[in-house]
Design a protein around this nucleic acid. Structure first.
Lengths: 131, 131
DNA sequence: CTCCGTGCAAATACTTTGCAAAGCG
DNA sequence: CGCTTTGCAAAGTATTTGCACGGAG
């Protein structure tokens, strides 16, 4: 079977679905989505491969939303919006680059830590949910 | 036993320990800390009361850190720093108020959502950890 | 043959919950 | 009394892991 990047077929499928969806899926969502086309896929494999992809730094965690970790293959620095009602996760385009290396360094020095990254998340109600 | 705010003694103890510590503790940490003085405290009670305090909006979640939810009784809007090695959580003083109501409204309009709050977290290595 | 990836099931880890008893006004 | 809080244990949910097998080089 064809393999890009020397990924196994299953790892590739997991990565591909992350790249091609904007909904920042959970493990379970990915599993359910792939199961029809890859019947012998197991949940453990999805977990294991997502951890591998995170270590490779080509996938990152959006955080734990309603008890489930959510993932994103878009490694560009951008905030997210999370709906407190339906738990959808939406990308927020960067309005302004608040957190450049200089800002990191400034806060790092001030607080006596070494900042390497950050996560900005907005919470509220999305437009598909009733007000 | 003395009760402020009409809290039960145990709820009060849980809230007090959150107010008086800066380490943004987990449920387990609070439980272990209180157990010696309140021997009949149970873990379920700590979970239940933290959820009550969250609903009362006098305690908030810092997020899930290394698999455990961490809490903060400081309701002022401020970012946190999380050490990726030891998982300590440190308050970051607000450098500048990026996210005022106008900013919320601006992004809300632009992205077609209703932003109510946000969470800013920095990640890196703290000063107590080996480089 | 060796290594990596995987299914499967068991094990873990964290959190929630049902229920009866206790506490408090 | 009636409503709230709690201990305890069981259940629930998400995630990780041990192991043996299978395919690719």
């Amino acid at each position: 079977m064809k393999q890009k990047r020397n990924f196994s077929a299953k790892r590739e499928a997991i990565y591909d679905i992350l790249v091609s969806t904007k909904n920042h899926p959970s493990v379970e969502w990915i599993y359910q989505k792939l199961k029809p086309t890859i019947p012998d896929l197991s949940l453990g494999t999805v977990y294991r491969n997502l951890n591998v992809l995170k270590e490779m730094d080509i996938v990152k965690s959006v955080g734990v939303v309603n008890g489930q970790e959510r993932f994103d293959a878009d490694m560009s620095q951008h905030p997210h919006f999370i709906c407190k009602r339906c738990f959808c996760v939406i990308d927020i385009p960067v309005v302004k680059n608040f957190f450049d290396p200089n800002t990191y360094e400034y806060i790092s020095d001030k607080c006596n830590v070494k900042i390497q990254s950050h996560n900005l998340t907005f919470y509220g109600i999305c437009n598909s949910c009733p007000k």
